[in-house]
Each structure stands twice: as C-alpha cells, then as structure tokens.
Design a protein around this nucleic acid. Structure first.
Lengths: 195, 195
DNA sequence: GGTGTAACAGAATGATTATTCTGCTACAAG
DNA sequence: CTTGTAGCAGAATAATCATTCTGTTACACC
C-alpha cells in the first residue's frame, strides 16, 4: 500500500465506506479501517475526529457514488416505471459484480444496526427513504397521471418498503435472478393496478 | 429483583429475548443481560455457556411467543388473504402496545446485525423466511386456486420481501396507521392481480 | 543539499466487555 | 440446628478496541 502523500477526505470516506458497507459499524475496528483505507490512524483522526464521524461521512459518499448514479433516472422529471425497473436492475447488477450474497444497502443496514440509539444515523436513514419516496411518486404520476395523489403516495410507500426488503434479501441470495424475478413480479402487480 | 431460586431456561431466554430484541446483540452487554434477566452471570453461563448461545436460544423463544401466535392463522390449511391481513394487524397492534417506533422483527434485525459473518444466525433467518414463504403460498392458493404454482411462489416471494421491509419500517414510525395503510395498499395490489 | 511539514508506523493508554473465579447467602432435608 | 447445595454478588482475568502519543520517514520548497 503506497503512502498516501495526499488524500482527500472524499477518497478516505470512499474506502471507509467500502469496509463499513461490507462489515457494518460494530465489526469494523479502527485497525481494520487503517488497513482497508491505507490511511494511518493519525490521518483518520486529523481528518474526521473519530470513527463515528468517519462513519457519518460515508453516507454522503454512498449517496454520491451509489444511490445517485442508479436512482437519478427515477428522479428525472419524465421518469416512468421503466426507469424504476432500470434502477433495480442496475443495483442488482452491481451486487452481482461485487459478488452475491452482497452487502445490501448501506443505509438500510445502518438503519437496523446503529440507528435505534443514534439520532444522527436515524436522520440519514429518513432522508434516504424520503428521497426514494419522492422519486417513486413522480415515476408513478408520469406512468399513470389519472391516479389520485393520495393513492400515488400510498403506492410509493409500498415501493419504498419493497425496496428495503429487496436489498435485505440481497444479503442472503447468491443468484441475482431471484431478485430480478421478485422485482418483475412486484412491478407487474403495480402495472396491473394502474390500468 | 427477587432471587431466582429456580428458573427455567425458557424463562431466562424470554427475558434475554426482550433485551436483545430491543437493543440488538452488540449493544447488549452481559452486564445488561444480568440486570435485565435477574439471573446472575453464573446462572447464564451454567445454563447456556455464553452470550452467543443465549442469543441463539432466543430464536426459539421468539418463534414460540411471537411468530407462532400471530402467523399460525396463515399456516392453517384453509387460510386466505384475510388471515394474512390479520397476521399483519396482530403484529402492528403488538408494536403499538409495546410503543412505536418498535423493535421491529427480531429475526430481520438479527439478519442485518449479525448474520453476515455468522452461519448459525444465517440459518435461523433462512428458516424464518422459509416459514413465511410456505404460509403465504398456501394462503394464496386458497384465495385463488386458479393461479399457477409458479406464479404463486413468485407472489409469495414478494410478500416475504414486503413483510421484511414492513417490520424494518416499523422501527422508524410512530403511528401504526401508517403501517396499516401500507398493508392495505399492498394487499389491494395482490387482490387486483388475483382476479 | 538542507529544512520544514505532512503523513507514517506502531507503542501506550484507558475504557469496555466476555468470561472465569471466589466467597457468600438462602433454603431444603435430615 | 446442621449441613449440603443451588444460586447469588461482585472481583479478577484477559481480550478487544477507540483514542492518543512518540518517534520516524518521505517529500515539497528553498
């Protein structure tokens, strides 16, 4: 591992994210993080101040490097359910390329592992789910403009719940097609009801 | 706390379950468990051998005291989607009586908190999800006998995923009606497609 | 080349925690 | 009452781990 003669906080967060994502907060010791990031204790503490702060910074990196690239298609003003399908496909492919069973969703994992007693983490989780909800609402509206807003929101709620469940399932499944079939079945349900 | 002149393993597991469920594995120290169970270190170690073994024993207790009472209606030979709805309602009420946001599902929590690196826990999680799947399959068959088995299994998969997502959501929600609406919307989707 | 600084490796510190151990106390059986 | 035993409280042990500290090394700038 080369000396990191100059590293940005973003680079450090990126590597930390990789480790936290795969192993969780509690199972990632500072020793592990030093090895995984290639940055010395001194570097970590002077850049972030501690393990928890480093962890929180990973949410930003996760949004930028994982969520946005996959989900922005759903957030575009004219997105439809096809874009939702593309979002799932992209994340499933990512999981496959990393190797299934994969690490799931960093946010969802953090929600159950650390959020209960931690308002900071809880806020990040809420923010993420709100983002998903907004995107799904707009995709539903575009796909079926005749549906009432109230019902659109309810369906988007169900979609968020399904999404969380799906990434949880991706942690126990070795074949991406199992996830694809679930997505397919679920989206078919939705399209049936929108007709 | 009275001296536990005689306690059964099941009683000890019950109290331990309560604490593990609310706080997770990592955040429950032996000190906490001693206080929460009213059983001394000696008692715990002589009954179970250690923290991990005690934790594993809680899965049995959880099945018996939480899952079975709520889910057996779905497992009865003539169950329908109405029984599925009752299952959700019962668990939501339980959450409300404990106080929302609640601890979610003990199994689902364990899945993300400890399962990744732990085959024993992973096996318990798989067992639980298989049980849900079986129950849902049979309820679907009874509600809509004309549906092909292949499609029934796929829908049951989606239901399991939704269930996991729902109990995850119950950890961040203070109003049970939010969960009820989600269940309602989801079951409506299902019924639409079965027609 | 010399010098200062930024980052390094790894040891010391202090806190926490699972597990084991030591004596003590309540109670039941005789 | 005596004695044996089952369970108790809490101290000792040993491991782990976040954080801080100490001395060292590579590199940029003069």
């Amino acid at each position: 591992m080369p000396r990191m003669t100059s590293f940005t906080s973003a680079q450090l967060s990126d590597r930390a994210l990789e480790h936290f994502w795969a192993n969780g907060f509690h199972a990632s010791s500072m020793d592990d993080l030093v090895k995984a990031t290639g940055v010395s204790r001194h570097g970590i503490y002077s850049s972030f101040g501690g393990k928890k702060a480093l962890f929180l910074s990973c949410f930003d990196r996760y949004r930028q490097s994982v969520v946005t690239p996959a989900f922005e298609v759903v957030e575009s003003p004219d997105a439809t359910l096809q874009d939702v399908s593309d979002y799932f496909e992209r994340q499933i492919s990512l999981g496959e390329s990393v190797g299934l069973p994969g690490p799931g969703c960093f946010v969802a994992n953090s929600a159950t592992e650390v959020a209960p007693g931690d308002p900071d983490v809880m806020a990040e989780v809420a923010r993420h789910n709100d983002r998903l909800h907004k995107g799904f609402v707009s995709a539903l509206q575009n796909s079926a403009p005749h549906i009432k807003p109230q019902r659109t929101r309810e369906l988007a709620d169900v979609m968020v719940i399904f999404t969380n469940g799906l990434w949880t399932k991706s942690r126990t499944v070795s074949d991406g097609d199992v996830l694809r079939e679930a997505v397919q079945s679920f989206l078919t349900l939705l399209k049936d009801t929108l007709k």
